[in-house]
Simulated scan of single mutants.
Amino acid sequence: MNTPSSSSQPQQVAVLGMGAMGSRMANSLIAAGYSVTVWNIEAAACLPLVKLGARHAMTPAEAVTHAEFVITMVWDDAASADVWLNPQTGALPSMRAGSIALECATLTLGHEKKLAEACATRGIEFVSAPMSGSLPEADNRTLIFTVGASDAAMVRIQPLLLAMGSKINHAGGPLDGISEKLMINGKLGIEYIAAAEMVALMKVGNMDVERRLAIKATTAPFAPRGLREARFMIDGDYTVRVKVNQMIKDLSYEIDQFESHGVPCPLHRAARSAFEWAHDKGHGEEDSTILAKLYEEEARQHGGVK
């Protein structure tokens, strides 16, 4: 396998999108010894990475000129399309044949199919590599990547991904990564709502919250991640990790996948409606754990206290 130090020159990577996750991923790659070029629509977001040794590019096209790997981490399909496909500034027209395009954002299956087709016409390998985890995992380099890629591409990208995360799950071909990640995030959204309802009930019902949570931890339905979110809700820790608006987006994308196969998804629709309710109350940019507080306030406002 290639590593940043396996030749006289470090491997070159372009990271496009310096939001909360993209900037942390770029930081990890710099620390691992890669030669990193960064781009962001607001150039100021690149400055902390430049101080760490990254090169700043003015456009995605400029950023990818010499890159073997190109990683994007942007908000949605529209942003991704502009970064990759814009005829004047987009990355794909300027990438070298044989390089690898890694889409790490959670996007729609239809959009990633278009990206894969556009890459194929240029001799570029497309990899869907969305990750599970939020800011603490990005800081600790313990992200989990769910990857759709050819076997040959997997060999090349493994050291790169392990510089940013702790585990790689190979889901199958190029589109299988995003397909699986949408299912994972859909389940996450449902678990957020279930935990929020449960925590609000325990608080409003004057239950022994610690005892009840300890009991739940011994039972099969309560996975560690769900218990962690419940702990945040109980403690009133609403530090932004996964925004309400992000869950609305991801659930909408997953519902699209269900609909494309004609599979009913009432739980996913109900979860999206709950997040939309929080958004309509002005909490779209807050962490998803805020749902527990909103449910508790709603109950107390309507006299639901024993």
Rank of each mutant, 00 (worst) to 15 (best):
T3D: 11
T3W: 15
T3G: 14
T3I: 08
P4W: 04
S5C: 00
S5M: 08
S6K: 13
S6P: 05
S6R: 13
S7C: 02
S7N: 08
S7W: 02
S8N: 09
Q9H: 05
Q9W: 04
Q11V: 11
Q11E: 11
Q11R: 13
Q11G: 10
Q12S: 08
Q12N: 09
Q12F: 02
Q12C: 03
A14Q: 09
A14E: 14
A14Y: 05
A14R: 10
V15F: 12
V15D: 10
V15W: 15
V15S: 13
G17N: 10
G17I: 09
G17D: 11
G17R: 07
M18S: 15
M18W: 13
M18C: 15
G19I: 09
G19E: 10
G19V: 08
A20K: 07
A20C: 06
A20S: 07
A20I: 14
M21D: 06
G22M: 02
G22T: 07
S23W: 02
S23C: 02
S23Y: 00
S23L: 00
S23G: 04
R24D: 02
R24Y: 04
M25Y: 11
M25C: 15
A26I: 13
A26M: 14
N27I: 01
N27F: 02
N27E: 08
N27G: 07
N27L: 03
S28D: 06
S28K: 07
S28C: 12
L29K: 01
L29N: 00
L29F: 01
I30H: 06
I30V: 12
I30P: 04
I30A: 08
A31K: 05
A31T: 03
A31G: 04
A32Q: 13
A32M: 13
A32D: 12
Y34A: 02
Y34D: 01
Y34E: 01
S35N: 10
V36A: 10
V36H: 09
V36D: 05
V36L: 04
T37H: 03
V38L: 04
N40K: 05
N40E: 07
I41P: 01
E42Q: 12
E42A: 14
A43R: 15
A43W: 13
A43N: 13
A44F: 01
A44Y: 01
A45R: 12
C46L: 04
C46S: 14
C46W: 09
L47N: 09
L47A: 11
P48V: 03
P48S: 03
P48W: 02
P48C: 00
P48H: 06
L49G: 10
L49Y: 09
L49W: 08
V50Y: 00
V50L: 00
K51R: 09
K51S: 09
L52V: 12
L52T: 12
